Computed example of a mutant assay.
Amino acid sequence: MYKVLFLLLLLPCLAAAQQPVVPRDTSFTVHSTYLKVKPNYPFVEKVKPVLPAGVSTKTDIPYSTIGNRNLHLDIFYPTSKSRNAYPGVLLIHGGGWRSGNKSHQVPMAQQLAANGYVAVAVEYRLSLEAPYPAAMHDVKAAVRWMRANAATYGLDTTKIAALGCSSGGQMAALLGTTNGNSRLEGTGGNNSRSSAVQAIVDIDGILAFKHPESKEGEMAGWWLGGSYEENPGNWEEASALTHAGKNTGPTLFINSMHPHYHAGRDEMIQKLSKHKIYTEVHTIPDTPHPFWLLHPWFEPTFQYTLNFLNKTFRKIES
């Protein structure tokens, strides 16, 4: 009996030991952002997760396995059942493709769920672990997981948006402009499902890596397998502007006052307008770059997002 009990206690430890050691860059956090911003904006406060009433959550759900590496997501969804399924949002954190984690997107996911959305904050492989296009394979696998598990969470599989911040915004835009691109699908699970998304929310993420307004350098190079001169193909392919066209969904851009974080935005709007695809732009004045992580800027960021998603998926005019 004691041997059986011992083995049962040991099994979780053995499972954890089998997980690979993943290199981490922990330099980009909510707290480090707060400390950096506060000297110039003494009124700021950190945005903290608070689970609203009527919202259920499940955390650290494995959604994809790469070798012996499990990738996880957190899901937030309305507790009450609805006769109509809820639209979904995949939330992709920022951190220069090298740092950050899914917890950064939890407050936004919680508030979206409180307003009738199935919201998923996703972990993906960062540049210290795997270069491009691994992260894109991961987020597309996460969309497929959402569709495969739609019945459990009351998700409408025809209405899924990709939302991202900074480098996550770049990824959300690339995800939304490459619907059906087989190179970026990967083999992360549920491959019989579609990874297409029907809308994009890009929060201060660039649309083109090689662009007069872009200042991307070493951070992008770590992810894209070298500098532009060393690997121009990846720099072009990873730019949403390269792919934007008739298969792109309605797109919302929310920007700080720094123009280099929306490099390629105006050209992308022009491309989408030729196909009569709706776009919306909001620039929040006098804002540092990771404004969405801090009060008082979280609230307008969320409200712009909710209004856009309601207009896109529920035909509610803001």
Rank of each mutant, 00 (worst) to 15 (best):
E229F: 04
L11M: 15
Y2W: 09
P49L: 15
S166R: 00
A238N: 01
G100W: 05
A151Y: 02
D25T: 04
Y63Q: 06
L306P: 00
E45C: 07
K311R: 15
A150P: 05
M146V: 07
R314E: 15
P288L: 09
L126I: 03
G264H: 06
S182M: 15
G205P: 02
T79S: 15
A16I: 07
Y153L: 10
M219Y: 09
Q110N: 08
A240W: 08
H72E: 07
T305K: 11
D74F: 04
N247Y: 14
S127T: 14
P232R: 05
N307Q: 15
I316H: 14
G217C: 09
P232Y: 03
S27Q: 02
G100R: 01
G100Y: 02
E267T: 12
W97A: 11
H243R: 13
G180F: 14
R193I: 03
E129N: 14
A199G: 00
I254K: 09
L91R: 00
M257I: 14
K311M: 13
F76I: 03
H289L: 06
N84K: 11
V106N: 00
R69Y: 07
P300T: 08
G221W: 01
N101H: 12
E280R: 13
Y34S: 10
F76C: 00
S99L: 09
K102W: 07
T57I: 14
K246C: 01
T301Q: 00
A15W: 14
Q18D: 08
V106W: 00
G116T: 00
A85D: 11
A17Y: 14
A85M: 03
V197Y: 00
G180E: 10
P20V: 11
Y261E: 03
L155K: 02
M1K: 12
P78T: 07
